[in-house]
Design a protein around this nucleic acid. Structure first.
Lengths: 132, 132
DNA sequence: ATGAATGCAAAGTATTTGCAGTCTA
DNA sequence: TAGACTGCAAATACTTTGCATTCAT
């Protein structure tokens, strides 16, 4: 019952492309358009949210106030490049041990963590200094 | 020339209060109101932004899409409590060495980092399990 | 013919800006 | 009296929802 989730499927396929690691809704819509898939913004939004709900994608809010979506996968951290504005994946910097110490020290309980580094990505590092 | 920044001053004073560690614009306006300082939302906004520009405060965007302001100070990380929704300060979990390794390994250049832990704060940990 | 998927339009939420008026050095 | 500060209203930016339609089962 119900038809095939054309857009959701296209999104999953699109997000595998190296064009971006993490996609804003605009990125997603533009990416689909480039592949000749016309989709309304609200449809892209709902499809992306559904992927997140299904555990196939993850949503992340950056300081610029725009959500980014990425394919779900092994945990990793991110670098937000100050020059090209891309959000790139980097291996996780924090070890489990660090949390154990922190929990003992502070009385908190840590269930997840999110690290966003600021700096230059591997592509931009050799180039000019940061824009902003 | 120009008058005394009544609101900015009040904000600085307010943010020292333990009520919150990090304040949304609504928190700030409400906090001022509680201290009998009526201020328009846009004024609170501009004053907060100015404090950030002056290096006296820092702005942080959480996944809920709302900005939080905190007094500038020594670097620390944050825990976003899943139960009470407060953003509390915790000592930094990452050592400088970690970045050196990461930079060598990936070719990126790290100039800052932002860590937001998810979990229970010291107050909520002894209580019920997380709301969401 | 049922229910998921889509498009279009509209609403919602949080932030940001324009402008005119106010106050103090 | 120049320039920073404020309030009010309006504009933005991005996200989210309502509703009617379409489509595959």
């Amino acid at each position: 019952m119900g038809r095939t989730p054309r857009i959701s499927t296209a999104l999953l396929s699109l997000m595998k492309r190296p064009e971006h690691h993490a996609w804003t809704l605009d990125d997603l819509q533009a990416g689909l358009a480039r592949r000749a898939v016309a989709a309304d913004f609200s449809t892209v939004f709902r499809a992306a949210e559904k992927l997140v709900a299904a555990g196939l994608a993850a949503k992340l809010m950056l300081d610029d106030g725009r959500a980014r979506f990425e394919l779900a996968g092994a945990h990793h951290d991110h670098l937000h490049c100050t020059r090209c504005d891309e959000l790139v994946a980097v291996p996780c910097v924090i070890g489990r041990e660090a949390f154990a110490g922190l929990e003992a020290e502070t009385g908190i309980a840590v269930s997840e963590h999110r690290v966003v580094l600021g700096g230059l990505c591997a592509t931009c590092r050799p180039l000019e200094p940061a824009r902003r």
